[in-house]
Design a protein around this nucleic acid. Structure first.
Lengths: 254, 254
DNA sequence: GAAGACTAAGTTGCATGCAACTCCGGTCTC
DNA sequence: GAGACCGGAGTTGCATGCAACTTAGTCTTC
């Protein structure tokens, strides 16, 4: 056994460390969009050798944060407002498929237990007259669980993978931009609306109403679209956000 | 040891060669499902070193042909009938989204030119009373172009990427299993039905009928579902097909 | 005869060496 | 003064070395 260094050793540990480190560097804006990601520089910054760095870049390319450069290597990607909207729409469409499949499989009442509990917890959370920042964090956690459970109920590994990949796109996740509204009064109302959709979605699935579940899930993702538009209209808030510097709202690629 | 083959040299050439070679080996059934893909063995078979082999495996994992093994490395994946059906459904759903977006953008008549030409060519092809095997190949080509053009008309790189990934899943492409029916009398009828959907899809898009286009595209993919079911009921034909040995129709993962 | 442990070969993940290529700066020419 | 050419530093893509780990096989022991 290795010495009891605080670092967990494992199989793909170096790659995972490189991937996480690169993600943080990119989202923190230290690597500006359009810039080539120099592998030697990352070796020095991340403390791993070039092989894991390269593998991590390959995976981040699939994730959408970087793209293969014209003459080798990888460059940090920039995102337009349309890119974000489309990515959310893709996720909503696939979650709609998952919701429909879940409904059509007519899950037993017991199988819906976790989802019911999650919705109940969200109900209690949202019912509060005012929400603290910690409440928003808890909402993000429960919301993520709701979406995971929804996909799980579809009972398809293939669909799960597709939804996962769609939700892994930058800013396309189910809880993107939620935090931005934590300080606004309208923030709670957004959550109330989303939670109503959670409830209806659970109802539709439990009743086997596939088309309704599909439409609800797609519409539910459009709440994220609204959050996105709200966020884009307030550039000051974006700049402080992780990954805010990746947004190219007006111009094309520099 | 440089091979003195007069191959085209390029940037990611070794990786591409490894990826293509591995794909062929797997689809030919030389690497049975569940078996670990030994990197040294592939080095010897493909004539490239371990680095490109590993990268190719990583990409094939994203493509779905292999999956990371429990204790390192990659294993050849097996596919159940449900996997194939779900993958086709995912593609159909995303093509539905693309069709809706294409319709909602109300493309100018000129922008629809390539799609119109493609549909016209398909019309002429399918109108023949009997189709040769070459005709089926031509159908596959034109059909692929139709689907590419459909996605292009959506005008979204994000959606295009999503559809591309869905269609890259094994057996989930728009022309999967078409060849199987080339020798059957019912083969032509399947094409007639699909071609009718192509025509209606073009009509819906040109009229800006988004919901109709979406439903048509999703239903269109279900023709592939029917082809899949027909193919599964005739195991003799499957065994000769590329990748036929990857199908695990009854049992779970061995 | 069967089960378990030990050994040895093979494999993976990571690090590094190396040649070709790219890009940037300087210099030369017109 | 502007543009084209050239040189070098830096980078990428590929190959290979190395240690830890897995696994298969064999031998021992009960």
């Amino acid at each position: 056994m290795k010495a009891m260094v605080a670092e967990e050793e494992g199989r793909g540990m170096q790659v995972a460390r490189a991937q996480q480190g690169l993600r943080e560097l990119i989202l923190a804006g230290e690597l500006p969009p359009g810039k080539r990601v120099s592998e030697p520089a990352m070796v020095e910054r991340l403390g791993v050798s070039r092989t894991p760095v390269r593998l991590a870049l390959e995976r981040l390319a699939q994730e959408g944060l970087v793209a293969p450069g014209a003459s080798g290597g990888f460059v940090v990607r920039a995102f337009t407002a349309a890119d974000l909207a489309d990515a959310i729409e893709v996720r909503g469409t696939l979650e709609g498929l998952a919701a429909r499949l879940a409904a059509e499989r007519r899950p037993a009442a017991a199988a819906l237990g976790p989802l019911r509990d999650c919705v109940a917890a969200l109900d209690r959370l949202v019912a509060q007259p005012a929400l603290s920042e910690a409440d928003f964090d808890e909402y993000v956690r429960l919301n993520a669980f709701f979406h995971e459970e929804l996909v799980r109920l579809a009972g398809s590994g293939v669909v799960a993978r597709a939804v996962e990949q769609a939700a892994a796109q930058p800013f396309a996740g189910p809880s993107a931009f939620v935090q931005l509204h934590a300080t606004e009064a309208a923030g709670r109302d957004t959550l109330v609306v989303a939670q109503e959709q959670h409830r209806l979605l659970l109802e539709a699935i439990s009743r086997g109403e596939g088309a309704r579940a599909e439409a609800l899930a797609a519409e539910h993702a459009r709440v994220a679209q609204r959050r996105l538009r709200a966020a884009l209209s307030d550039r000051d808030k974006l700049t402080g956000l992780p990954g805010g510097s990746l947004l190219r709202l007006a111009a094309a690629w520099p």
